[in-house]
Design a protein around this nucleic acid. Sequence first.
DNA 1: ATGTCCTTACCTTAAGGA
Length: 259
Amino acid sequence: MKIATFNINGIKARIEALPEWLESARPDVVCLQEIKSVDEAFPREIFEAMGYNVETHGQKSFNGVAILSRLPLEDVTRGLPGDEDDPQARWIEATVVGKRAVRVCGLYLPNGNPAPGPKYDYKLAWMARMEARVRALLPLEEPLVFCGDYNVIPEAKDAAKPEAWVTDALYLPASRAAFRRLLALGLTEAFRAVQPAPGHYSFWDYQAGAWERNNGIRIDHLLLSPQAADLLLDCQIDKATRGGTKPSDHVPVWIELDA
DNA sequence: ATGTCCTTACCTTAAGGA
């Protein structure tokens, strides 16, 4: 089972690039972030015609997540528990049954800038809510995949210029500590499980020639429960999509599970 | 180098977010 995460930065803007990538990469499941669309406006027919089931958790203008899957999506839930009044659409879950049943959680973690400030407070509070959700799911002892745009640079080797990020919400010690707390629950970060080397990124800013200079950061991650980690066969970053026509500023990251 | 892109709205230009 090939499961991907891809922050598309607007479904309207990616209406050509996303289907092209799906045709070439052919993931079984893909979690999308920043669809920037309400559910009714998401062009589901395009993806249904390609054989995908579509579940969205949208929002006007900002945020919004979705799951596309060739296999049926079961027990779909929307929203991250822990704050009934949070209007931001950043979390969706569904179960996909292949050889094994896999619970897939797609997430768009808050950016948090500027820090300090209310946006950073929201980021850290959201990460605490996510930790609670992971704690609630782990006792099921099932394959779980938490994938998405984490807006966290885990380590210095995940940035081309780490010194440029020291005051940024994506790299502040409290952000990285909260990310490590997720790993400490027993989750495996898929990319680092197969590739320990520096120089691998998933995001290049549109500004300042970041792509041309390879000034990137790695912020799109797939975290696996022990039962999912046991099934991990591969994890790759589809870097080439950043050089395509009208690209997102993020590229897809995917895993292959024996599931 | 605050150098780009995406979205929306008081919509042919600016603002907020990233």
